[in-house]
Design a protein around this nucleic acid. Structure first.
Length: 408
RNA sequence: GGAUGGGUUCCCGAGUGGCUAAAGGGAACGGACUGUAAAUCCGUCGGCUCCGCCUUCGAAGGUUCGAAUCCUUCCCCAUCCA
């Protein structure tokens, strides 16, 4: 079997490594226990996190043992909101809820069963630390002078940095030490923004255990001009199908810039590198084909074959007039509530296509809406039962947003 | 705790008594052009029962015919000092 390191390298994952040659050698000769941490700042992972999940999958496929660490403890340090007791309580509840969701998601993609992988939550050790003991054992190993010289703090020095946040690095370093002691974890992976936290852990393990450990960081998911990917007008692109539907996820990747297609294929699909390299030579409208493949593959990995089929079928039905309309995003309206007729603006509001009626009026003025292929000319238009065919009606907003309205 | 400078609509950032729902830029959205791309151009960008009305400029009070702009108190942030 090939060395994962080479696989990750040729796909363009790797950004920085603590000891390149040693890591490669280690990964080549034994099953390595490694970890990646995810702070539960929300109740779902988003596409930016997913690149880390992809790495874990690659690693596991090559026989290494992942520890999926949910940062139920570190998240309390990273994001110090909620000052009063009341709000703090709520905040903790929210964290637990988020942590559960994220742990569940991780288990979907990585085999965390006995012997194959490990699921952990750093709240298990961070929540019960004794301040004095911790300072004496761990705090003594850190130099404030050195910490301040870290790039991640330098940037924050201008904006201000609380002592709480300053401790984040130490918490994460301690996680690595703890996992090293409990499970023999020797390698920490993460996004490139985690670099200083990771080397802090490597340093801590060397000082406390006199043993060597390693760190490796990966590219963040960015566009070719350096902007973060995975943000839309509706917020982040989530892994949770309730928050971002498989269809929307599909469309997100269907619509990436030309310049980003190849990068996304390498990072977010398992297509063979040879095939991707071949696709990189495609030109003009063939690039469009590549986007479809990308969108399909990503949807398949995240939501499964069936959902991916549905998404591509819906997209083809809407954009190419061929395919199955059944899976198009749909809003259901109770027939009794609809009555005989409904004002367009009300209908659009119910369908979730406009945030306010003012917005609806403006869009209609700009010819932004059509119903069953006919441009809506006036916001006073009444949609009647006659507009429905078999109880269905198709609304289009702009060029690419479709919503089926269905009477039930 | 002290001194100074700040908190403006999604973000950055103008505005220091009426002409301000608040310049400019970015993002976003609609239209044209395209390949469900980019770039470009045009338009929109608080809400509503929309030619009028209502709610916004850290929070709460106050002065005034009228305040984002003045006063008071409070909260928060930055910088320097302790």
């Amino acid at each position: 079997m090939r060395n994962v390191y080479d696989v990750l390298l040729e796909r363009g994952f790797i950004e920085q490594a603590t000891h390149e040659a040693e890591i490669k050698e280690l990964l080549g000769k034994e099953a390595v226990t490694f970890y990646i941490g995810f702070d539960p700042t929300a109740d779902s992972l988003h596409i930016g996190h997913f690149i880390q999940v992809m790495v874990m999958m690659h690693m596991q496929q090559h026989g290494h043992k992942p520890i999926a660490l949910v940062g139920g403890g570190t998240v309390k340090v990273g994001d110090p909101t909620g000052k009063t007791e009341m709000r703090k309580m709520l905040f903790n509840d929210q964290i637990d809820e988020n942590a559960n969701q994220i742990a569940k998601q991780l288990a979907k993609y990585i085999d965390l069963s006995e012997g194959k992988g490990i699921a952990e939550n750093n709240a298990n050790w961070l929540d019960h630390l004794n301040y004095i003991d911790f300072l004496r054992e761990i705090g003594s190993k850190f130099s404030v002078n050195r910490m301040l010289s870290a790039e991640c703090f330098k940037q924050r020095m201008e904006k201000g940095l609380s002592f709480l946040e300053f401790n984040y690095m130490i918490m994460q370093a301690y996680d690595f030490l703890e996992l090293n002691r409990r499970y023999g974890c020797k390698l920490q992976l993460g996004g490139n923004d985690q670099w200083s936290n990771i080397i802090a852990g490597v340093d801590l393990i060397r000082r406390s255990e006199q043993s060597e450990s390693f760190g490796l960081t990966f590219k963040l998911l960015t566009t070719s001009d350096g902007r973060k990917m995975g943000k839309t007008e509706a917020g982040a692109v989530w892994i949770d199908p309730e928050k971002t539907s498989p269809y929307d996820l599909f469309q997100y990747f269907r619509n990436v810039d030309d310049a980003d297609v190849i990068n996304c294929l390498k990072l977010l699909t398992f297509l063979p590198i040879e095939q991707i390299n071949d696709m990189a030579t495609w030109k003009d409208s063939d690039i469009n084909k590549a986007k479809e493949i990308l969108a399909f593959e990503v949807t398949k990995i995240i939501h499964g074959q069936e959902e991916a089929d549905k998404a591509i079928s819906a997209a083809k039905a809407l954009f190419a007039g061929a395919g199955n309309m059944d899976n198009v995003p749909t809003t259901e309206i109770v027939t009794a509530e609809f009555g005989d007729a409904m004002n367009v603006l009300d209908l659009l509001t119910v369908a979730g296509l406009i945030a306010s009626k003012g917005e609806g009026r403006r869009l209609i003025q700009q010819n932004g809406f059509s119903i069953n292929g006919v441009v809506v000319a006036s916001h006073e238009l009444e949609v009647t039962l006659n507009d429905f065919e078999n109880g269905e009606l198709m609304v289009k907003k702009g060029k690419k947003v479709f919503q089926k309205i269905k009477l039930v």
